[in-house]
Nucleic acid binder design. Structure first.
Length: 573
RNA sequence: UCCGAGAUCGUCUAAAGGUAGGACACAACGCUUUGAACGUUGCGAUGUUGGUUCGAUUCCAGCUCUCGGAGCCA
């Protein structure tokens, strides 16, 4: 073993196992991967798993194989002009970059259309492909089904000359959509239906967002993908499980072209299980239905698991990368618990988001023994003791405050550590107060709390008694009003009802968005900038909405609540 | 039914013939001017039947169950 041999990568998933053994066996000297989205929609967190895998592989092995040419391409799989658009390409690039990855080369399958055409002619000349003039219904019928072998197309034995002529005339636009297709000549009785003379090209008189009107025939995925991989020198072509049956065709295409085309690599396809998450939907179709049916407010609606949605919701790229690393890569279908994602964002924001105070549902509190006009500035740290960061601000304190409605109960149980008649609590960063009276409206609702404060308790524990609870507050005279959008899980059920088209809409969580207006923020938040994140103490992590928030009319999105063991215990009762 | 793939704690995932480990979730306790965070402890799994072996989650065979496959989508 020569001493410059690469140290084997730390194997922590089956893909890396494969790559390590390829490297050891010297089948490759470098690793080239690609992320190949079709530009026909927006990326979601399932794509993030693939992005982290493919780009992560390049990053890992570049470290182990310096100067080897190890890299990861971004390639748009743009073979169906009917559905694809430049707009989607821009969104996808933004999302990949936001996630923190840079591609080594931006490619399009359409870059290779000319080569693909030439290779198709080669296949025809080799007797491996033919022009079929059956209708789509006939092709379907001739294909048979999973238990019944298909039958040969009557056009299967056309001469090479006629096939070449027809194929070139297809390209020249002499036929209408659907009149002919180019098919691989493989085996109509193959138990793998993908091998029953699969279509290679179809006629589509449709402009393409990259090639314009140059083409009116377009290659199919199963033909274009292996060729694109081979041309780019991809070594490990990683895709999801539903392509397992396509692998045999992938290999057929590469094997039948490799001697002729002199590809720089002989790529191999490997399949891993796509990400599923409970309490949400991940399929393109369902996402599209939510957006087009106006069940949500666009592709970046913070309830959606799209990258754009998660970004607007306030998720950080790090949290998503950590999540992807945490769920791992394997071949078994699985559904990850949403709690895992929520853990990742809390874990990241815990040391990134400064603490501030905000009252979501205000209840007036008046301190009877505090001077009417006095305003004290209380020093409040932005960070808790266990976050090693410095910084604080002054929070104004006066006779009239707002506290959270949920922090007061008229007749509290004994494990309620907050405020009630006669009870004492700590006001965060400030004094302890004791409730002496309540004011009710005509309907008997509590509209104001009267308290006295203990001047000895600023920065000191009260003597002779233990005060267990601490609540947040905001000075009523200094509060800044804001709109808070409380987001929760998209679905109220773990898994949407399977099957039936739109049935999943019934599982939508009606409380996935709750809009609160007139929330009271501490004044330091008045100048919060778009996309700034905070922890509102005892409530959750929030971000200034990037679209709707304006100075003087602040809008915050709740990213995730804090864990609340008290609320959880109450629920169980 | 045919072909392909898979099956390990509630969930996700390691171990690749040699003590079934980690993370999330959950529970208890500790700490606490956030009922947060953090810390400690606990709970908890190799689908099934055989075979090979000193030893099997791992290798072999059968069975069971799950997922994918019959677009001129990807």
């Amino acid at each position: 073993m020569n001493s410059s041999a690469p140290a084997p990568a730390k194997a922590n998933d089956f893909i890396r196992d494969i790559i390590n053994s390829d490297l050891e066996a010297k089948r490759h000297q470098k690793v080239i991967t690609r992320f190949p989205p079709e530009p026909n929609g927006f990326l979601h967190i399932g794509h993030a798993k693939s992005i982290c895998l493919n780009f992560g592989l390049a990053l890992d092995y570049r470290e182990k194989l310096p100067n080897s040419g190890t890299r990861c391409h971004l390639r748009f799989d743009d073979t169906d002009p009917v559905k694809e658009d430049t707009l989607f390409e821009e969104g996808i690039q933004e999302d990949v970059r936001w996630l923190g990855f840079n591609w080594d080369g931006l490619y399009h399958a359409s870059d290779y259309f000319e080569k693909m055409f030439e290779y198709a002619e080669h296949l025809i000349s080799a007797g491996k492909a033919y022009v079929c003039s059956l209708t789509d219904a006939q092709i379907k019928e001739f294909r048979g089904n999973v238990t019944t072998p298909g039958k040969a197309s009557p056009f299967r034995e056309r001469s090479i000359e006629e096939n070449l002529d027809l194929f070139r005339r297809m390209r020249n636009g002499e036929f209408k959509d659907g009149e002919h297709v180019l098919r691989a000549k493989i085996d109509m009785s193959n138990p793998n239906m993908k091998m029953r003379d699969p279509l290679l090209y179809r006629i589509r008189h449709t402009a393409h967002h990259m090639t314009g009107d140059k083409w009116c025939i377009y290659p199919m995925y199963d033909y274009a993908h292996p060729i694109s991989d081979a041309i780019e020198g991809i070594t490990h072509s990683i895709c999801t499980l539903e392509f397992e049956n396509n692998r045999e065709l992938y290999d057929w295409v590469v094997d039948n072209l490799i001697d002729y085309a002199k590809f720089p690599s002989r790529p191999h396809q490997y399949e891993f299980a796509r990400l599923n998450l409970n309490y949400t939907v991940m399929s393109k179709r369902r996402l599209l239905e939510l957006v087009e049916g106006k069940h949500v407010d666009g592709w970046d609606d913070p309830r959606l698991p799209t990258i754009a949605g998660l970004r607007r919701r306030g998720y950080t790229p790090e949290s998503i990368r950590n999540f992807c690393a945490g769920v791992g890569v394997a071949k078994a279908n699985s559904t990850v618990d949403m709690a895992q994602l929520e853990f990742c964002i809390r874990d990241d924001l815990n040391h990134k988001a400064p603490r501030v105070m905000a009252v979501l549902k205000p209840l007036k509190l008046v301190i009877e023994n505090f001077p009417d006009d006095e305003v004290q500035e209380q020093e409040a740290s932005y960070w808790p003791h266990d976050v090693p960061k410095e910084g604080s601000r002054k929070v104004p304190f006066c006779k009239e405050l707002y506290i959270e409605q949920d922090d007061f109960m008229l007749d509290p149980p004994k494990d309620f550590y907050r405020l009630g008649p006669g009870k004492e609590v700590r006001l965060r960063y400030s004094y302890c107060v004791t409730c002496t009276d309540v004011v009710k409206d005509a309907d008997g609702n509590v509209i104001e709390i009267r308290c006295t404060y203990d001047p000895e308790t600023l920065g000191a524990n009260p003597v002779g008694r233990k005060v267990k609870g601490t609540i947040h507050w905001v000075s009523a005279r200094h509060a800044v009003d804001a709109e808070l959008r409380l987001y929760d899980r998209l679905l109220s059920e773990e898994a949407p009802p399977a099957g039936k088209d739109s049935e999943f809409l019934n599982a939508i969580n009606k409380n996935a968005l709750q809009v609160l207006k007139g929330c009271k923020l501490e004044p330091s938040l008045a100048n919060a900038k778009a996309s700034e994140r905070f922890q509102f103490e005892r409530q959750g992590y929030f971000i200034v909405d990037s679209k709707d928030s304006k100075p003087g009319a602040l809008v915050f999105n709740r990213i995730v609540t804090l864990k609340d063991s008290y609320a959880r215990a109450q629920q169980k009762k």
